[in-house]
Design a protein around this nucleic acid. Sequence first.
DNA 1: ATTACAACCTTTTTT
DNA 2: AGGTTGTAAT
Length: 990
Amino acid sequence: MTAAQAENPILKSLNAAQRRAVTSNASTVAILAGPGSGKTHTLTSRVVWLVQQTGCQPSDIVVATFTVKAAREMKERIGKVLGPDCERKIVLGTFHSIARRYLSAYGKHIGLDSKFGIADDGDSRAVIQRICKRHDFNIDPGYARSWISKKKAKGPAAEAAPNKKQPENPSLNECYREYQEHLERSNLLDYDDLLVRCVELLREYPACVSNIQAVLIDEYQDTNGIQYELMKLFAQARQRITIVGDPDQSIYGWRSAEIRNLYRLLRDYPDTDEISLEENYRSSQSILDVSLTVIQQDKKRYQKVLLPVHTKGARPVLRKLKSSAAEGDWIVSEIKRAVMMFGDMLTYEDVAILLRSASLSRHIEAALGKAGLAYRMIGGHKFYERKEIKILLDYLRAIYQPDNNDAIARIINVPRRGIGDTTIKRLIEEAEQLKISLWSLLRKHCQGSRKATTKILPKMEAKLNTELLRIISNLQTQAQQITEDSQHTLVDLIEKLLSQLDFKQYLESEYPEDHEQRWQNVQEFLSLANDFVRDAANLEDEMLPEIDNVDQVKDDSILGRFLANVALASDAQKNDEGAEKKAVITISTIHAAKGLEWPIVFVPSVYAGSIPHSRAEDLDEERRLLYVAMTRAQALLYLSCPLYGSQGMGTKVELSPFVSPFASAAFAKQGASFNRPILEGVAKILGRDLPSEKAIFAKLPTMFSPEDNLFPVDPIDTRDAEGQEDAEGYRPKGPKRQRLNNQGYGNDDEEAAEERPWKKEYSTTMEQASNFTMASLPGFMSAGAHQNALSAAAAAEAEKEAAAKKTVKMGTTRRKADQSSLLGFVTTASKKPAAPGGGFGGPDASMARYQLAASRSAARMAAETKAPELPKLPAVDPSLAKHKLASGNALNRPSVIKKEDDKSSKKRYHCFSSSPPRPAGAEDVKEEQATTQEVPAPDRPATSFHRTTFVSAASRGGVRRPVGLGPPPGLDRLRKPFKPLTITRPAKPQ
DNA sequence: ATTACAACCTTTTTT
DNA sequence: AGGTTGTAAT
């Protein structure tokens, strides 16, 4: 590189490959980036480079991301470097939101009413359902919906070929047609339409993108056909495109993402500069190894290299638990163990629990709630999907677009007006026959100008008239005024709506149990609206640049934009005003976790049916999903699997085929001992300062178990003994083992465990003999013995531990102690009554215990065949270790130790040449972002959390609820909290 | 005939 | 937490 480049601060934080990607002069650049390789950073830097070095105007750059979160983050990062001015000007957002902006500004050129609304999922479903029902189509509406969506998403490229298929159900096409007609009549676009119409616009009216100098696409592997088309069209003036992606992380095939787009790009732009980023700055080597083992089972995948930059680290864990409930409890215990054993270095903020589906969160939430741990949930139920919020949104939509039949239909009877489903349905049908909107039908009927054939009782008609019609038309008038004078704001409008509906009272009567919570959500909604108005006013967000001789419509009302925003960002983000820096555990779907990272990651429910989801059609994609989940972890990775399904007794569950082939070879069966080398390794990966041993152990609560031994390592369900029918295909791994020391330490099945006779005690001998060394034989886990020892030790003096151990009996009495140690720990964390028989009071005792554990684990590691080799790291200088760590120290990565001579060994994306022979399903390339962990997804307001669990959490002193649910934030929140951007690049890999 | 209410059952992933 | 069923009340 040139001298000038060397001095450029942007480039300093980049490694060679990244730098090449950033500074490439090629007009199209394809960056293939594995997980944790700094993808986002690279893309961001390229934007900066284009602006600073090549003179691109920010307003002439388009950056499209796949998720709102990614867009936000990128925006923030760019703003940090280029300043808010540039940040504002760059056209940056999800494909959908960018398309919406263009359609709203220029849609008139393709005959689109600029006041179009966006049909969300519910709308589409309702419409299609109605159509199917009306025609007695023998189609599953859900299927029809996705069929239509796919058809749209494939884009023009796929148009030609597919007739060869098979006789398509003609009703599908009819359904499609009518659906489209209906949307048009209501002036709605569904998600796919946004893209389809935008393609149409850019084709027919290229002038509106004539200014575009560069197009950058994030998460390219998740791009579908229509998006590819869109990308090309945005770039039509200059053909300058940069994409970043990783085929291994393609997890949106179900939404028509096509990995094939990569080949298309190379075919359409033969001079594309291909660059691969191979260094992984995120995870420990052993995490990468295991992840790679998983992903490599996909034989067709594009082989790719991941070069670990960090040391080996703790072995990833695959933990088997008896039940989902036990799984939840175990996760809690392991989280607590980790947080405690690392002193102040790790907080709950560093922990994520990643799920295949949101519904799996129930057990986890229950366990967290029981333990009093606060959490935040990403993905899954969305704020805007809440009943009470949806009602309000439907009213707003009706106000904005009275012709939106679906919105009207949903609110006709919402504060109850005595109009039932059947009547509503009839009204809709009638309106549709007449080709008028439901709104005008009602209007005319109530005004008497035209009687509806559907009969409406006078009482109800009166209600309709005074309540529904009046409210809506009143507010419509008010909504008009919003744009002009700033006296009336969107918030005023909503508040008026609330009062006219008597909404609070409605909630009270409708949800006697719940109403407070729901009212809080409403308040939250108000404050969200307030934020939106403020942001829209301050930074003229999302305004497209003026282009000479091209006129755009700026007619966009605030209300319209607000509604669009809601539809496109189902993820309500709350600017939490840094109010409380709640260190809170994150629960997320894997999909929503893409691009993020955490020091500690749990992936529960790794069983067949969950991770290859039972309804999944693409197993490879499911595997990739697991891969994505695993590669979110920086230092500690835990997979877990309940052996028996949650419901009832029946369902046995089988370990996911994605890990079972090498489960015992690649994973540890229980959490690692947090001995000094492990701790130091983690500290190094995270770039944090590790507290001294003393500091750590001074804080350990009494009765704290330093090992992951509260749950049996190889649980066998007691019910199994009682003649459970073997589900098809279920086969206990290996011969049925006797339960040795696997008595349930979890809290379920306590009784059963109690009654279970102890088969043998021979295991004790062995354990005693080996002292605390783990038996390495599979199936002979000494967890119980360890537990016993610890419990016993708790009752005795620390020095007597060895002796105490011998006195342990494998009797029922023991379990009591175990249990109390679990529960004791939980409560002790906050309270601190001396545990029964609590000899383990002081730091000294804790230290003693620790040392014991450390030596034990050292022994175990020696015994284990595959023990990770831990580099002997120099102990932290004691003086250093005494430093109290600032809580926020987390974020800087240390300079990376890069392996110097891997050049020779690394493979390249060698077949990344133009016009690849298109192996039918060959999937390739993609990327991953090296996000910094402090940019977790936006919080959901606490009010939207599952309330039940929070209530229980709140009631046990220890942990506070994550967010103050106070009154809506005042107007003092005029400034967006300035969140420092953490660009966490390793200092310089040479 | 319609509406309202109570007892079930079911939940992929997201713009 | 929602939707869908089945039953009771209007």
